[in-house]
Amino acid sequence: MKRALVIALLLAVAVPLLIAVADLPPHGSPDAPAHTHVAPRYLERGAEEAGAENIVTAVILNYRGLDTLGEVTVIFTAMAAVLAVLVGARAVTALDTPASALPVSMIVRFIVRVLAPFIVLFSIYVVLNGHVTPGGGFQGGTIAGALVIALTLIMSDEQAARLLPRRPERVLQAAAPLAFIMTGVTGLLLTGDFLGYPVGHESALVATLMLTFVEIGIGVGGAMVIATIFRTMGAGR
């Protein structure tokens, strides 16, 4: 009975969806509306008017910057949410989990230590090169965050706690939205539009600086948020 209901529900979802996608413009055809309406402008003029050769980055940071402000806000929300749910929980542990897991093997320790500087370098590269190659602030930040997680695994809790800067921690956690809003306001002052970037040859440097600032902000903020979420979740071990 229950199984029949589930199958009926799945069919009720799948059949209309299949009928619908069959009628969509053909996949991969260059004449589909998706490729003829808005996107050509991005492709033709994105590099000059949005200041990034990687058009995906141009769309993210410039044409649809407000979406990305929303995106960094979402990731900050996730951190605030995890902290609000987990921090200061009244200890009503129903089951005691083992206090510590297996000791980390020497090989893992060694490899993480050796790779760490290269990972840092790579993450900085990904952040700073986002406007010419695939990558960008969030991707680079995630790599840095992953490094913090890897280091946490091979360290004692006290050592790991020192990995993240203690004092300005909460400012850095908010770095991504803050950098975005600051750039937005700078754009407002320079061009009269929120999140506007100066266009033109002579002000190209200013635009590049602004884009780089946002990328670094997103990178730092993303890394801090990911590391914080991980640490908060691990704290109850």
């Binding site: 998706a34 490729h35 808005v38 996107a39 991005y42 492709l43 994105g46 058009i55 995906v56 141009a58 769309v59 993210i60 649809r64 979406d67 990305t68 929303g70 995106e71 960094v72 979402v74 990731i75 929300t77 996730a78 951190m79 949410a81 995890v82 749910v85 960008g136 969030f138 979420i229």
Partner: peptide
Amino acid sequence: INPLPQALILTGIVVAVSTTAL
């Protein structure tokens, strides 16, 4: 390739990650 959907989905992925974290 159309850059717009890729840009959207980068945002979408971050949203999904955030939901997963919570």
